[in-house]
Design a protein around this nucleic acid. Structure first.
Lengths: 225, 225
DNA sequence: ATTAAAACATGACAAATATCATATTTAAAA
DNA sequence: TTTTAAATATGATATTTGTCATGTTTTAAT
């Protein structure tokens, strides 16, 4: 099994602030897992006993609304940590995590992470910075949800995925989502998401290659904002 | 001027995790301020050089959407800290803070807070917990904005204010908001907020005493969710 | 007290979005 | 392959919400 000290993935998250000794200790008690597309990593309400460091793949964090619809709140990708929030607040998870494609993750037990958070101020300050950034992102999402139209939100979602998660060699968005997923991100009915995407296609703003979406006119989408 | 060591307000926020020495040091460089209702504490985009500890009063955190409408993202009340997020992420504020009633605050310079965050793990872990909780709250707001009707959101807002900020001796909500404020929280047009509140009144769910709102049927409002 | 300006209220209508029905296409399973 | 199920697509219609207009009430200023 790989060693945390040598793992390059940690460069992208707060684990980079741990000392070599701390990494060796964590490495000795972590476990690697493979998660298949569609599989649930943890359920809403589940008590987590560790965090996941994502070595490869992407997952969605969603919450079931009272009307029975799923709302995707965030997407977490290769290089990022998963589950640390619930660990810190010492509560059961308020979100469900499920894989959007095949994933490889390392699981680090709760006790190790918490110990380091309480002993290594550099590490905890790093996590703090990360969460401050997440809160900023949440503010933006709230404003968009509250003030913008479905069309605008969907356009921004496409741009966000493009900018944050990148594209394949043919220019299509590397993250493959169903229309239902798009609807769950934007907060609309699946039919509405389908209609808007069809419209974007007609207007030449996007095209599709198989199930993949390709942005053809980024500025056109941006101008919609 | 009051001394932080003896101030009871800090019991309600992360400052309680500071040592006596740290509190004495902070006390010596803090400044007290009075802020009048409606006054802006800091603007969107402003670089903060410290945090505010709210001794009395309540303020709103809002963000201007591209369509020119203000969205209230959060309300911060007596006992809580203000501005620490931007300080931590070392970016200019993404939100505007303005007083909803007369306030008394203590201003603590950035350098002091950052130093303590980096030296006192108990303090930083406490702030971390606080932010994890805020993120949870943000998730809920996102889901509500995305999935619920204006009527449901307004009902929940009233319940939230009731539960979080309490009531006056006559049972009216202690926080006094204009219809425009309610609209900015819910993310709707002012006219819509007015209409829904009128409807709630007709249905006996709420009543008004002057400009204050009183919840008459909490379960009725809750059942709307 | 009078005037001006906000805040609140309500009607009429338009626009956005949800819902229901029903095809069609695509993917999965037998 | 054939069958079945799931995902995508689109029309028709109902509901929700926004916008504009206008009136009333409340608050602030002269």
């Amino acid at each position: 099994m790989g060693k945390c000290e040598q793992c390059i993935i940690k460069q992208f998250n707060s684990l980079k602030s741990l000392t070599k000794d701390e990494l060796v200790r964590i490495s000795s008690c972590k476990t690697s897992k493979t998660i298949k597309k569609g599989e649930v990593i943890f359920e809403e309400g589940e008590t987590l006993n560790g965090v996941y460091c994502i070595k490869d793949g992407i997952c969605k964090l969603s919450k079931l609304s009272e009307n029975g619809k799923d709302q995707i709140v965030k997407m977490v990708v290769k290089g990022q940590l998963l589950g640390h929030r619930s660990l810190i607040s010492d509560e059961s998870s308020n979100l469900q995590a499920s894989a959007l494609n095949d994933m490889e993750v390392c699981f680090i037990p709760k006790s190790e992470i918490i110990a380091d958070l309480q002993k290594n101020p550099k590490f905890s300050f790093d996590v703090l910075k990360d969460m401050a950034h997440d809160l900023r992102e949440s503010d933006d999402i709230i404003v968009n949800m509250a003030q913008k139209s479905v069309k605008q939100r969907l356009a921004e979602t496409l741009i966000y995925i493009h900018d944050s998660f990148g594209v394949n060699s043919d220019g299509t968005l590397s993250v493959l989502l169903s229309r239902e997923d798009y609807a769950s991100i934007v907060g609309t009915a699946t039919e509405s998401a389908i209609r808007v995407l069809s419209q974007f296609k007609k207007e030449g703003l996007i095209s599709t290659v198989g199930k993949f979406v390709k942005i053809e006119n980024l500025n056109g989408l941006k101008r919609m904002e």
